[in-house]
Amino acid sequence: MHLRVYRFDPSVDREPRYESYEVPYQPRMRIMDALDYVHEVLAVDIGYRWLCGSKKCGSCAVNVNGLPKLACWEPVQERMTIEPLSNLPVIRDLVTSRAPYEAALAKISPTLVRRTEYAGFPEPLKSTDVAPTAHLRECIQCLACQSACPVLRTGDTDFAGPALLVALSELAQDPRDGAERAALASDVANVFKCISCYACEPVCPAEIPIVREAIEPLKRMAYRVGSTPGARRAHAFLDTVKQRGYANAAAVAARSGDFGLGALGVALKMRRRGKLKFSDALGGRATPGLEGLRRTYETSEKEDK
């Protein structure tokens, strides 16, 4: 097997480099076994982090050929370029700092805030009460999803990212919790910045349906509260479609009160390319067959209640 490993020691190196190692294949070998071989047999001091070696601690995720993988869990490939996770600062070589994640976690108050006083063990709780969070509780905070997130890759520091939203959603959907999780989701974690691209789901070693079971429920909650720009935009979008049968950027902007300079810049650019008419903000034609669409709205609103 051929390994190309990212090497960077910020205390001495001016820029990162790649070093190559030949590692003999052993049956059932994991990525971690290959890294261990480099460390133990080739006696190279690569910086890499692993603790439990059995998919419990979530400390060993790295990018392999461009995709985040839990090193202890995934099998080796014949040629591997191994790099640190994206969207996190590098401490050395493959080791990234978890500090930004911890700081963001602290902001969403990640402990249970009880609605009512604790009743003593065992407190009244049924398996059905906690079923919505069953998959979320499997999260080991390996941060593979944070690494795969294209919104975080844009450098957006307001967006908490999928791993944080999983933690927040677990609490938000806990029947015992009474904190204002919807407000935290929209104002602090900026859940509406998630574009529902699903890039996080296939890389999750715990196989958590992150978008469907963590993020969408948070968006729904935040939508109901509706006070933040993100929630207002979501309302404006849905209302516009309900009214006309199609989305329209000018109308969405007008309804959500998005009149900032940034929004104006984007609007002008869109207008130049023929994608937006300012007059649409006020009126606009309804699409044929709108009645059917409205019935869909009514059904789903009823179900949501």
């Binding site: 249970l112 604790y118 003593g120 407190e123 709780l125 049924k126 398996s127 906690v130």
Partner: peptide
């Protein structure tokens, strides 16, 4: 032991009737 950890939010497996 159990109340200390359950108070923090640990969920020990129960059935649909709520029995441990």
């Amino acid at each position: 032991f159990y109340p200390d950890l359950e108070r923090l939010g640990v969920y020990w497996r129960r059935d649909a009737q709520g029995n441990l």
